[in-house]
Design a protein around this nucleic acid. Structure first.
Length: 307
DNA sequence: TGCGACTGGCAGTCGAAAAG
DNA sequence: CTTTTCGACTGCCAGTCGCA
């Protein structure tokens, strides 16, 4: 009879990594073992499950149906196990070698990391932080435990999730300081005559501005669409294009000497949240991360307002 | 009975070579 | 280029034996 679990539970850790990477060499690096050792673990897993699990493919190995069926339950089980182990263990930031995975956009990297990293150097020198792009599957990644926190628009937060609301912030329209429109009040008619940059992070729902304009039966001319916030100041400073964006973008654009104007359409405020899964709510390490986040938010409150 | 030394089996690692 | 296989080596662990 097939045993329920392999004798060596490290095999399941290896399987989890192999199914994620779909590449024996890369999985070996992540596991901290040699490629041949990873290959041998895969061999034992194949024998245990009586299935190839990973079939030859390019550029990545292909998951068999059995492996597809195993991937999610295995990831969730391991995530629960890690959470259980971590919940029972004291968390000391001074000695912890934990890695936190944050999901967000490049603005998170530009704004949060410069505050976070000096604090880590001071209080938690062995902890590492990885920022991945927040995409439509962020809920699944939190569930699976492959991410710790996601920074997303509030309307995307699932009702069941734990969340910390980030400070609301207004929108501004940015243009270069000597832009022909910079010296006059930005009316709706003038706004619609301009060429616009649309920031549309990959995989996330689209533009608040265009929805607001559409409600009034108007349309703007989008000349360029980009995925990243921090590249926008370069575009704006070097062209006659304008961008309408959260005020934080203006705050990180200071070196470019851009002019921030009040958008001529009512956009309300930008509401975002930091979201995490119930499973890690009581985890001491996760609590520590969130307490830092709360402090950083309070310290950084009061973003740039349009002038 | 407890302790330390020794031994054999097993699993894991590495480097090299073969295969696809 | 990547994966698989093979042989040599190493470390761990359980079992055995001798000794106090």
């Amino acid at each position: 009879m097939l045993e329920a679990l392999p004798d060596d539970l490290n095999l399941l850790l290896a399987l989890d990594v192999l199914l994620r990477e779909r590449h024996v060499t890369r999985a070996a690096k992540r596991l901290g073992i040699t490629q041949s050792a990873a290959s041998q673990r895969l061999g034992r897993l194949r024998e245990f499950f009586g299935d190839a699990l990973l079939a030859p493919g390019r550029p990545l190995l292909a998951l068999t149906p059995r492996a597809e069926a195993l991937a999610d339950p295995l990831a969730q089980a391991l995530a629960s196990l890690r959470a259980a182990v971590q919940a029972g263990a004291p968390f000391d930031p001074a000695t912890s070698e934990r890695r936190f995975v944050l999901l967000g956009n490049d603005l998170l990297e530009a704004v949060a990391l410069p505050r976070l990293l000096p604090m880590l150097a001071r209080e938690a020198p062995y902890i590492t932080v990885q920022v991945d792009r927040a995409e439509a599957d962020f809920v699944r990644r939190l569930e699976r435990g492959t991410a710790d926190l996601a920074f997303v628009p509030e309307f995307l937060v699932p009702p069941s999730s734990r969340q910390l609301r980030l400070p609301e912030e207004g929108f501004v329209t940015l243009m270069r300081r000597d832009h022909p429109a910079a010296s006059r009040r930005l009316t709706l008619e003038r706004y619609l005559e301009l060429g616009h940059v649309l920031i549309a992070p990959h995989g996330m729902p689209g533009s608040l501005v265009d929805r607001a304009l559409e409600a009034r039966g108007r349309r703007r001319r989008i000349v360029a669409q980009v995925q990243h916030f921090v590249t926008v100041p370069f575009l704006i400073a070097a062209s006659d294009l304008v961008v309408t964006c959260p005020a934080t973008v203006a705050a990180v654009s200071t070196p470019f000497g851009l002019r921030a104007a009040r958008p001529p359409v009512e956009l309300g405020v930008d509401r975002s949240s930091a979201v995490w899964h119930e499973r890690v709510h009581d985890d001491p390490g996760h609590r520590w991360l969130r307490s830092w986040l709360s402090k950083a938010i309070r310290a950084g409150a009061g973003a740039t307002q349009p002038g």
